[in-house]
Amino acid sequence: MSKVVADVMDREPVAVRPDTPVTEVIRTLREHELQGVPVVDDEGRVVGIITESDLVIPDPQGDLHLPHFVELFGGVIFLEPLKRFEEKLRKAFAQTASDLMTPNPDTVRPDTPVEEAARLIHRTGHNRLPVVDSDGRLVGVVTRVDLLGALVS
Results as ranks from 00 to 15, higher is better:
Met1Thr: 12
Ser2Lys: 13
Lys3Cys: 01
Val4Asn: 09
Ala6Trp: 08
Asp7Trp: 10
Asp7Pro: 06
Val8Gly: 02
Met9Ala: 05
Asp10Lys: 10
Asp10Arg: 10
Val14Ser: 01
Val14Arg: 08
Pro18Asn: 02
Pro18Trp: 04
Pro18Thr: 00
Thr20Ile: 11
Val22Leu: 09
Val22Met: 03
Thr23Phe: 13
Glu24Trp: 07
Val25Met: 06
Arg27Ser: 12
Arg27Tyr: 12
Thr28His: 00
Glu31Thr: 14
His32Gly: 00
Glu33Asp: 15
Leu34Glu: 02
Gly36Ala: 13
Gly36Arg: 02
Gly36Cys: 03
Pro38Val: 02
Pro38His: 07
Val39Thr: 05
Val39His: 04
Asp42Leu: 04
Glu43Leu: 11
Glu43Ile: 00
Gly44Thr: 08
Val47Met: 12
Gly48Trp: 09
Gly48Ser: 07
Ile49Val: 15
Ile49His: 04
Thr51Asn: 04
Ser53Ala: 13
Ser53Leu: 03
Ser53Thr: 12
Asp54Val: 07
Asp54Met: 04
Val56Pro: 02
Ile57Lys: 04
Pro58Arg: 09
Asp59Tyr: 02
Asp63Ala: 13
Leu64Trp: 07
Leu64Asp: 05
Leu64Tyr: 06
Glu71Arg: 14
Phe73Leu: 13
Gly74Pro: 09
Gly74Thr: 12
Val76Trp: 09
Val76Ala: 10
Val76Phe: 05
Ile77Trp: 10
Ile77Val: 15
Pro81Met: 06
Leu82Trp: 12
Arg90His: 01
Arg90Asn: 01
Lys91Cys: 08
Ala94Tyr: 08
Ala94Met: 06
Thr96Cys: 00
Thr96Arg: 12
Ala97Asp: 02
Pro103Trp: 01
Asn104Tyr: 10
Pro105Ile: 04
Pro105Arg: 03
Pro105Gly: 09
Asp106Ser: 12
Asp106Pro: 00
Val108Leu: 03
Val108Gln: 07
Pro110Asn: 10
Thr112Asp: 07
Pro113Ile: 02
Pro113Val: 03
Pro113Ala: 03
Val114His: 05
Val114Cys: 02
Glu115Val: 09
Glu116Ser: 11
Glu116Gly: 00
Leu120Ser: 10
Leu120Met: 14
Arg123Ser: 14
Arg128Pro: 00
Arg128Asp: 01
Leu129Trp: 06
Leu129Tyr: 11
Pro130Phe: 13
Val131Arg: 05
Val131Gly: 07
Asp133Ser: 11
Asp133Leu: 08
Ser134Trp: 12
Ser134Phe: 09
Asp135Tyr: 14
Leu138Arg: 11
Val142Ser: 08
Arg144Gly: 00
Val145Trp: 07
Leu147Thr: 13
Leu147Arg: 08
Leu148Gln: 10
Leu148Val: 10
Leu148Ser: 03
Ala150Gly: 09
Ala150Phe: 09
Leu151Tyr: 01
Leu151Met: 09
